[in-house]
Amino acid sequence: MTILNANKVTKSFGGLTAVAKASLKLEKGELVGLIGPNGAGKTTLFNLLTGIYTPDSGTISLYKDGQEIMLQGLRPNKICSNGLARTFQNIRLFKDLTVLENVLIAMHKNVKYGFVPSFLHLPYYKKQEQELINDSIELLKIFNLDDKKDELAKNLPYGEQRHLEIARALATNPVVLLLDEPAAGMNPAETAELTRIIKEIRQKFDLTILLIEHDMSLVMNICERIYVLDYGMVIASGTPEEIRSNKRVIEAYLGEEVNNA
């Protein structure tokens, strides 16, 4: 069953076509990789899917509860409320806020109390606020960040900042999770831990995941399917084995790396 379908999406910046008629389909529950050389347009495609940019042409549909929701043209917050969450390649945490606050903010759409209870701190506010905090801490536990809930995000080590980005995205309660180079800058041990966490949250939250990654061992290891982007175009897609032996991929992209992985 298809959950996300991007159809011939295009985006140009001036003369440069960063994403050119790229089509991509995710089946429910899949873990799919998105690879390609630097500047291929991977992050731009994420930005299109999540509404940071509006596509020049093409459509993006999300299928939820048997209904098709057109995402192109919606604002990012609407796309997020529809169940598409992401992390950022260049970490964009709320740096000067605590770990807990980062997650709480992402839980905002679960809040039912209105403005009056928040001005007056009525019991209704207090009860819900406590529930939000409890849920956030549960989430942080998965990433072993619950002990650090009161630390400022900017003071976390790099790897933990990447973890917090994922925790924050999960707090929005997504059906599709987009991870932009989650293992960037991690050592092999950290990457292994990350791999374990990705598998765990996928099970636990019943997620469909699309993952951009340069670390080929990670991609080949956990992805069931891979899309390859080059100059904004999808030049290949298939299972890791198919991609590994795909001639166009080897030519256009990182031949040796793919073979060695």
């Binding site: 999540t50 509404g51 940071i52 604002r75 990012p76 917050n77 997020c80 409320s81 969450a85 992401r86 950022f88 964009r92 945490l93 709320f94 740096k95 000067d96 806020l97 606050e101 709480l104 903010i105 992402a106 839980m107 905002h108 759409k109 809040v111 109390y113 403005f115 209870p117 928040s118 001005f119 007056l120 701190h121 506010y125 606020e129 939000l132 924050r168 995205a169 707090a171 929005t172």
Partner: peptide
Amino acid sequence: SNFIKSSHGRACISIREDEIAAEAMGIDT
């Protein structure tokens, strides 16, 4: 000061911190 400590207030603060990230986390900025 109560408002600031509520989820609505945190939504405001998230805009100051990073407007794009706030939007991507579902905040109607």
